[in-house]
Design a protein around this nucleic acid. Structure first.
Ligand SMILES: [Mn+2]
Ligand SMILES: [Mn+2]
Ligand SMILES: [Zn+2]
Ligand SMILES: [Zn+2]
Lengths: 154, 154
DNA sequence: CTGCCTACTGAAAACGGTTTTCAGTTTCAG
DNA sequence: CTGAAACTGAAAACCGTTTTCAGTAGGCAG
């Protein structure tokens, strides 16, 4: 289930849920963000579109979006951190350790790794959770040349 | 840094930390567990060896063990969940979705996957967080048909 | 031994993100 | 219109974790 308006609307309808103005604001805020967002950041962003929105509704909506696969959670090494839009049924997230930008990737042929792990541990492996981090193209370019430094986190 | 008594003792000493009875109880509890343990579960297990142990000390000790790489955090799809002993400098965890047993694996040749992700996203990838789940050998055996002939593994 | 310094401790309080409760409000079918 | 069900935000409750604090343990110099 992707994070486009139509799919969302359909998923909500299927569950007997209404796609209210508040919920739309949350969806739009997550979709518009290029980076992963905490619940509070979603709240702040969404309130610019819908000032009377409450934090409670943000949590409730993110929960639904997570259930229908429209957003994915990002885990840091220490904490459960944030949400990112999920565009593909099976996809993973690369997070830029410099600026926080999050991008989805879908080319994850894990057969070799999964086979090796199965052989080593004796488990029958059914799922993989993979999350990469690195430097995004923009940050990489900025690091090599002087110029208008964007938003940096570091 | 592995989770054996000597390495732990050395790492603690290097940091000017004392390896007290309470801390030893925490280390032993994590090391003895075959599954991932939450802080509270560590507390319960460790108190059998050291009844006057406090929860505060468990958190403080797990923090140190995490810093020196003797334990690793396990993330669930929704939550940051638990701690597992870490035996290798670079290793990952397979968690049994049936019994919770956690096993470490080290054969994670991610070159192909990382290259594909880099090509797809334009990121320069520097780290990977990978966590597998599936069914451990014991659970697989128990779930299979009681007869010796009809065992289906996948 | 004594005294001193620092690491360490658990109980209790504080903290902070999340969930629940509650008393309305909105939406929609009939 | 009426009534049912979904939905809402504010406030309270919740709960795992961290901080505070007053005291304890242990190594070491004298
Ligand atoms: Mn994948
Ligand atoms: Mn690896
Ligand atoms: Zn970046
Ligand atoms: Zn199992």
């Amino acid at each position: 289930m992707a994070l486009d308006a139509d799919s969302i609307a359909r998923s909500f309808a299927e569950r007997g849920l209404r796609l209210t103005r508040q919920r739309r604001a949350v969806v739009d805020a997550v979709a518009a963000a290029g980076a992963s967002l905490s619940a509070l950041q979603v709240f702040d962003a969404a309130r610019e579109r819908c000032p009377e929105l409450g934090l409670t509704t943000v949590y409730r909506t993110l929960e639904v979006l997570s259930e229908i696969g429209a957003v994915r959670r990002v885990h840091g090494p220490d904490h459960c951190e944030a949400f990112v839009p999920a565009g593909a049924v099976h996809g993973h997230t690369v997070v830029c350790s410099s600026c926080g930008r999050a991008t989805e990737f879908t080319q994850c042929d894990m057969h070799a790794v999964v086979d090796a792990a199965a052989r080593q541990t004796g488990y029958e492996i059914t799922e993989h959770f993979l999350q990469l981090s690195g430097i995004c193209a923009a940050c990489n370019a900025a690091a090599g040349a002087p110029g208008p430094s964007g938003k940096g986190a570091g």
